[in-house]
Design a binder for these strands. Structure first.
Lengths: 335, 335
DNA sequence: GTGAAAGCGCTAACAT
DNA sequence: ATGTTAGCGCTTTCAC
């Protein structure tokens, strides 16, 4: 059995009391330099580590933060997680990642589980399926610090981090227009997501600026956020089968973008339709059909969100003023 | 402050002792149906959850397993993690993921941290940099259940899961040969990794089978496993600059493969050199230059590894017999 | 400066 | 069937 040494073992070995050892270990000043030295050296020698679980129980905090994302196999989220970790580690926190796979059920289970005193705070990007927010409202009311990022929620008052989705979508759509496209379809994410409406607005604004009327028939929503390959395939097929086929597609997300390209390839339509969309893939410039991409500052978003969460966790007084950070996207043409 | 209800609160509210409540909650049979019902209903009503930290402290186990991988932003590992989670959740375990970014230091820190009684066992794929295994040996000796997957370690006696790297490499190399290539370079991973030598052997075997002599000048190792973009770039450049330029490259890993394609594109060499390599990317068929790929059964590997680890954790008696599972790869031509 | 004791939330003997 | 108690590993009053 795996049985690590405890403070008690050290006390016994050194003929001291556990409290003395404890104090020495955490460098309390009310301890003689001699004993402190002895303890520290011994602890070092046997590679002693305080039991974090006992510590958590006692201090009623775990020095860990929970991260809930739909999927880790997604460049945007894995980059965001790297950002989160970079801050968390530097401030002595652990990061516990959990995936929803865009399922509402998993989101509820995961947040509950994480919340129940095993994390000090929660960083969450909503699942595509989530329409009921009661699980989050309750945790938030109970006082669990929560920060939303990317797929945020208006109704809960807390810190939030997003990218400038409207502007990103605008840039992508405008790019397509400037390339001469006029019938620009929009392959959108689940309709209830914050990012979906923001990106749609950017799309509309760009069309408006160039006097192209919005045609709702050219907009398809993927309610499973692309987790369902078939859903994307059908949406693309729908576009391709239109009597008046679109000459471009603006795609709202990473998952959707790759799904869209795969469908275009499958239907052999890759040459007569231009694609631009959100993607943080690191192989975006190697794709064929090519994908001009709106890239979100995922790493920075993760950093920012983690900073906000930790400030919430460590705040001595209840925080009343909340901030929504909006980071800028960049656009990369690929041909 | 986030202050969840405790068993004590329930006891007080219901005028019972904490032990009765505890027993009712875990369905001990030595409790009257009436009280059990009352307690359960009340707990349900207030959405009570036992404090997992207190539980861990008491039971000396956390019902969580630690996963150490180099990077989550890697299709192979994220698929493997999905497999791990599928098993872990079904058996009531949590999964704590930590990334080494292929740094030895981070591997040491992360494993220590996870091990120290906050996980019941460890699933690990070694970092590219790791040459010293003392940190793992120590934990293993102390009795922490460890299962290696993908990048395994011979010297520690425990369960292991890999794919048939030799055969995968053989298939890829043979494919290139059958395509008419004769000067086949090999872009390899860090030389100390198990997968590196296994894949190199497959490469050599294929060359041997077709009577092509092995030329060590055609083999380049990437000691940072491709984490260092420049390293890959230089290796590819080295191949391209050879007086007798290779007509194909067999690439040993996902990260390396995309880095290799990027370099080929950069140096405008994508048309006269054929690439085959290990990759679990889900966009592999969309890549240009194209990448014919050896795909590992990542999800299955994760499942298998998790099953092995949990059986180790839950074994009543010390396990002495260990198994190394070797799963088969598949090869996918892309042109 | 150091030790004894209580308590964080929970469970499992050990009473009754 | 239920209550009392001790203890998981740690920190922190409170004594001395």
């Amino acid at each position: 059995m795996f049985k690590p040494t405890t403070i008690k073992d050290i006390a016994k070995a050194l003929n001291l009391s556990t409290s003395t050892v404890s104090r020495a270990l955490r460098g309390g000043y009310e301890i003689s330099e001699d004993t402190k030295k002895i303890v520290l050296e011994y602890a070092e020698k046997i590679n002693f580590q305080r039991n974090p679980i006992a510590l958590s129980l006692r201090e009623r905090r775990s020095y860990s933060i929970g991260v809930v994302v739909c999927e880790v196999a997604n460049q945007f989220f894995s980059q965001a997680i790297d950002g989160i970790e970079s801050i968390a580690y530097s401030k002595g926190y652990h990061v516990i990642i959990s995936q929803t796979h865009d399922k509402y059920n998993r989101e509820v289970i995961n947040t509950e589980h994480l919340a129940n005193r095993s994390v000090d705070g929660l960083l969450i990007s909503l699942s595509a399926e989530t329409k009921d927010y009661a699980h989050l409202v309750r945790l938030h009311q109970q006082g669990l610090p929560i920060v939303f990022f990317d797929r945020i929620l208006d109704s809960i008052k807390t810190h939030k981090v997003t990218s400038n989705n409207r502007d990103g979508a605008f840039k992508a759509t405008e790019y397509l227009i400037k390339k001469g496209c006029r019938r620009i379809a929009h392959l959108a994410n689940a309709s209830q997501l914050s990012i979906t409406s923001e990106r749609k607005t950017g799309y509309e604004d760009a069309l408006g600026k160039y006097g192209i009327p919005l045609d709702e028939n050219l907009v398809r929503y993927c309610e499973y956020g692309g987790s369902n390959k078939q859903e994307v395939d059908e949406a693309v097929k729908y576009f391709l089968d239109m009597r008046d086929r679109p000459d471009a597609i603006f795609v709202a997300s990473d998952r959707l973008s790759t799904g869209c390209l795969a469908a275009l390839k499958k239907y052999n339509a890759k040459n007569n339709i231009l694609i631009a969309g959100f993607s943080n893939s690191d192989v975006v410039e190697l794709l064929n059909p090519s994908l001009s991409a709106v890239r979100q500052p995922a790493f920075e978003m993760g950093r920012k969100a983690a900073e906000m969460l930790i400030s919430l966790i460590e705040s001595k007084y209840p925080v009343e003023e909340f901030e929504t950070a909006i980071l800028e996207t960049t656009f990369h043409e690929n041909t």
